[in-house]
Design a protein around this nucleic acid. Structure first.
Lengths: 217, 217
DNA sequence: TCTTGAAAGTACCGATCGGTATGTTTATAT
DNA sequence: ATATAAACATACCGATCGGTACTTTCAAGA
């Protein structure tokens, strides 16, 4: 073992997880280094041993979070699912993440934990913006594959530009989550997400499912 | 005249305009009261004479900005335009606002000056969130009228829920602008806005226009 | 055992945060 | 002319910001 290593990996992991959680629930500027340390049960000495700046921490934390979440993406976008099932998985995944993750008190929707921060900072915080761009690029690969699959199975009307449609899906999801965050309503997210996805994709009518509420009725 | 009034109205107006500008270009938390005062050419004494808190200033500034911008909305959504023209006006208006307004250096897209701040703060800043909600409600009236008009003229496929479609349009626009902000690309905004609007509305094919670039080609 | 360096603790830095206390100017009513 | 209050200026507050300097603890190698 390396000398002096008490449990550096755990400390680092705690800082990464805590940072994402706090910043996600609140905002990049609102949550300070001090509070991240306090919540992580770590002192500032440890913090600045592992990370050079707050922005560096966020960058590492976001990428770490994405890497963990990537497994979920791989499962839900598995080729074992039909494109239609993949679409439904994506929708469910978004809603479930808002439902299940530990949120701030009485906050139903927190948005995307990674992209949100990119929207919260000005151009000064280059590293935060860059982070949003990079991970958006990663996520977009899944969206593109989804749209490509739907088109290949002839489920889409017209002859869409695949990359553009995938991008629009992403744009809409981000807008929707921020809307849900501002209006503190997970219900609207649930209600609008599927319908809007169908519309942006221009999914052929015969492949569209009724919404959950309508199906119950 | 009221005693002591040097030019309170101008001072107040300067603070309102400056606040919107700075916060829009950067972020709610990043721009402090001090800098707002500096840029406005006003001292802190004047600031806190006119406004009780920073949040109060923002609230007033956002509503003031909306009231000024409302005239533009009324023009572009005038009943003298067909619903289709109104839609085109909305699209042009969004792009033009990003183009024409004084932006930060090398920042092509700043997003919606009002809704953006709502995305930038946590639930603590109740007044900022409330502000986003209120003005969103106002803007939504125009979107609803637009969708209603399109439907009345039988330009939309299916039998859409007007309120929902209007809401989805708003959600998409916000997501698009934040996307454009993060990726610093007005071109993507221009490219995607019209196509996505057509899709979300499910505008009948015969009423859709080709995008500007395609029409040139 | 004793050194060594990684990992963490403690105390503190200057700067800035939003906000306040108190003084000063200025136009108006008397 | 003088009192009065609106409108602003100046100086300052405690708290917190991100970050640094210095010290201490602890595990491994020699």
């Amino acid at each position: 073992m390396v000398p002096g290593m008490r449990n550096a990996a755990e400390t680092r992991a705690m800082l990464l997880d805590t940072a994402i959680q706090l910043i996600w629930q609140s905002s990049y500027h609102q949550v300070g280094v001090n509070e991240i340390c306090r919540q992580a049960g770590v002192t500032k000495g440890a913090f600045y041993y592992h990370f050079e700046t707050k922005a560096d921490l966020y960058y590492a934390a976001a990428h770490n979070h994405w890497n963990e979440f990537k497994d979920e993406f791989d499962r839900q976008f598995s080729p074992s699912f039909t494109p239609l099932e993949q679409l439904q998985n994506l929708i469910d995944m978004i809603v479930d993440k808002q439902k299940n993750d530990p949120l701030a008190d009485e906050m139903e929707v927190s948005g995307c934990p990674i992209f949100t921060a990119g929207a919260q900072v000005g151009a000064e915080e280059a590293k935060v913006i860059q982070c949003s761009r990079e991970i958006t690029g990663e996520v977009n690969k899944y969206h593109i594959a989804l749209v490509r699959g739907l088109k290949a199975d002839d489920m889409l009307n017209g002859d869409p530009n695949i990359v553009q449609v995938a991008r629009m899906i992403h744009q809409y999801i981000q807008g929707l989550l921020i809307y849900g965050r501002v209006f503190n309503s997970l219900e609207i997210v649930q209600t609008d997400l599927k319908e809007a996805s169908y519309r942006i994709l221009d999914l052929k009518q015969e492949y569209r499912q009724q919404s959950v509420t309508s199906r119950i009725a």
